[in-house]
Computed example of a mutant assay.
Amino acid sequence: MRLTHPSGTTSHLSYCTNVHPAEDLEGIIGQFDTYAVPVRDRLGASVLGLGLWLAAPVAAELAADPALRGRLRDELSVRGLEVVTLNGFPYRSFHDPVVKHAVYHPDWTTRERLSYTLDLARILADLLPGDAARGSVSTLPLAWRDPWNAAMAGQAARRLDELAAGLAAVEAETGRTVRVGFEPEPGCVVETTAQAITHLAGADTDRLGLCLDLAHLACAWEDPAGALKALRAAGLPIVKVQLSAALETGEPEALRDYVEPRFLHQTRTAAGHRADDLDEALERGLPAPWRVHYHVPLHAAPAPPLTTTIPVLREALKELAGGPEPLCDHYDVETYTWGVLPPALRPRTTEQLAAGIADELDFARTELRDLGVTA
């Protein structure tokens, strides 16, 4: 969906399709009819934005074949769908029974990660609407923190230089600008905005910047105003914002129903205690309160004593979109955990999932409208 900031800047609001498991072109196109078109209809939107997730094999096929890219663009257009952002964090197999640490591989020390990301940039340059100012691709924050050493840091720095050069080549060839945003996440080499400033120092900030996931920001117990002020001072652009909410509670035992085997749910306490997964945090009995990297639906508060980090999301949006000029123009709702919620909270049908996604987007649209960002 397109909204307009009081400055006149267009803001793009989408939902991320990494919530769906398809990893081939036919399956991806099938998602459009099963989910995206019903979501668009529920919202009464003439055009719905998608933050596409393309697994590495299908991305390689699309990047190599202009005719396939043309087909994908046409399949989107005929359904009233558009794409200005891609999620390039999961490489493939994001809906395997167990994902956990595998989502961080290949990392930014490898040529595989570079090639995948440049494939996405080439695809996005062709998918972008003609009047879109730019495209964005989100990616992992270099690597999981262990192992990490000076040699790996040097390899990653070289890959980022190659990435910036590759993005410049895509722009020279297509006339379209695509930027890549590194997404701080608990447990990674870049976990906080301060670490992003350190590790991306010297990067080409015309093409590289930050993907700010608001659940991750909350789990790091960062102050949104302070974090954004520091990013502006460092000249590090916010390429993309992922609208997401984490779990929060002062009574951790209430979280036991959220333990599940597929994804990592890094847990952080207000006092700075850390666990890499929710079951570990419960076993160790970390002191409350906790925030847990578990993306939960934006619009639906869990049963007490659980709550979510929606207040952090609101504080961040006020800084991002509430000023005279927006700090970002790409907003992607990224709740990929619908299928691993406690059984009583999971959608049972495709219609229920489409309705939940639509409700999240309506929630996000309302939050932005309250800041003066209107249709």
Rank of each mutant, 00 (worst) to 15 (best):
T10H: 01
H101A: 03
R79Y: 13
A288M: 13
G250H: 15
R158M: 12
R291Q: 01
G49N: 14
E360W: 04
R314M: 08
A164R: 07
A275P: 12
P304N: 14
A225N: 05
L210Q: 10
G51I: 02
E253N: 11
P343T: 03
Y294A: 01
T17A: 14
H101W: 06
R69K: 12
P90S: 03
P184Y: 03
P141A: 15
L50Q: 04
A233Y: 11
G88R: 01
E351F: 00
V190H: 03
H265Q: 08
L247V: 05
L236C: 11
A59E: 08
R369A: 13
E23Y: 02
M1E: 10
C219P: 12
L217R: 08
Q266R: 04
G322N: 09
F89R: 00
P57D: 11
R113F: 08
G209P: 12
F32M: 03
D204Y: 00
G49H: 05
A227R: 06
T174S: 15
T350E: 06
D131H: 12
T269Q: 05
L264A: 06
E222M: 10
S244M: 08
R176D: 11
D146A: 15
R369N: 11
L212C: 13
D41G: 09
R176K: 15
G80I: 01
E222I: 01
A364N: 02
D359Q: 13
P184V: 02
A143Y: 05
R134S: 14
P90R: 07
P326Q: 13
D370A: 13
T335M: 14
F363Y: 01
L163V: 13
A60R: 14
L128D: 06
A67M: 10
I238N: 08
I310Y: 05
V292Y: 02
D257P: 10
P129Y: 03
A153S: 13
D24K: 04
D277T: 10
R158A: 15
D24F: 02
H295V: 00
T269F: 05
L341D: 01
P106Y: 13
A194C: 08
D206A: 14
R145C: 12
R369K: 08
L48C: 02
